[in-house]
């Protein structure tokens, strides 16, 4: 789940007609160091942002910066599609943005550290040309300049 055959018809059709990009290969950077020495950023497509920051609109291909020390009480979500159950993220932001779990990994010495900030995009993009050509590479450059080794990409 969500296995397609278990979804309501309207959601299934929405997904089956979704214009997913088709690729044969992927760029692949092997990590240069172990996780205990790596700096990690979450890059989420859950449409999260700091309270008071500009909300996303549907199809918005810009991104928002969420400082990694932002209290979870200050993070809201403007990806409000009714195709998913938002009660889970109301209860626990870590369901899409596992910032507390990553802080625990850092405290336990299993992860080197967190990037100074995480980045967030809007989900359910039917046309993501600008993310591919502009905003995605921009986030890549910014995170690389911050010494980020690993990005964890999470949906909602």
């Amino acid at each position: 789940m969500p296995r397609l055959d278990r979804l309501p018809q309207i959601s299934r059709n929405n997904l089956l007609t979704f214009p997913a990009q088709v690729n044969d290969t992927a760029p692949f950077v092997r990590p240069g160091k172990p996780l205990v020495a790596s700096r990690l950023a979450i890059v989420t497509t859950a449409g999260l942002h700091v309270r008071g920051d500009r909300p996303f609109s549907p199809g918005d291909q810009t991104y928002r910066v969420i400082p990694s020390d932002t209290p979870t009480t200050d993070i809201v979500q403007s990806h409000t599609s009714i195709g998913f159950d938002r009660v889970a993220i109301m209860r626990d932001i870590n369901i899409s943005f596992p910032i507390d779990r990553l802080r625990e990994l850092v405290a336990r010495g299993e992860l080197g550290g967190l990037a100074p900030y995480c980045c967030s995009f809007m989900g359910a993009q039917r046309d993501a040309a600008r993310i591919e050509s502009e905003t995605g590479p921009e986030v890549g450059r910014r995170l690389a300049a911050e010494g980020v080794d690993v990005a964890l990409i999470t949906p909602t």
Binding site: A20, P27, P31, V43, E132, G136, G140, V150, A151, L152
Partner: peptide, 23 residues
């Protein structure tokens, strides 16, 4: 796709997928 853009910038990525058919 976002992952691909980040790898091209030299960052290793790992993604969580909810729709296997798309991934």
């Amino acid at each position: 796709m976002l992952a691909r853009a980040l790898e091209l910038a030299g960052i290793s990525t790992t993604s969580i997928s909810l729709v296997r058919e798309h991934t």
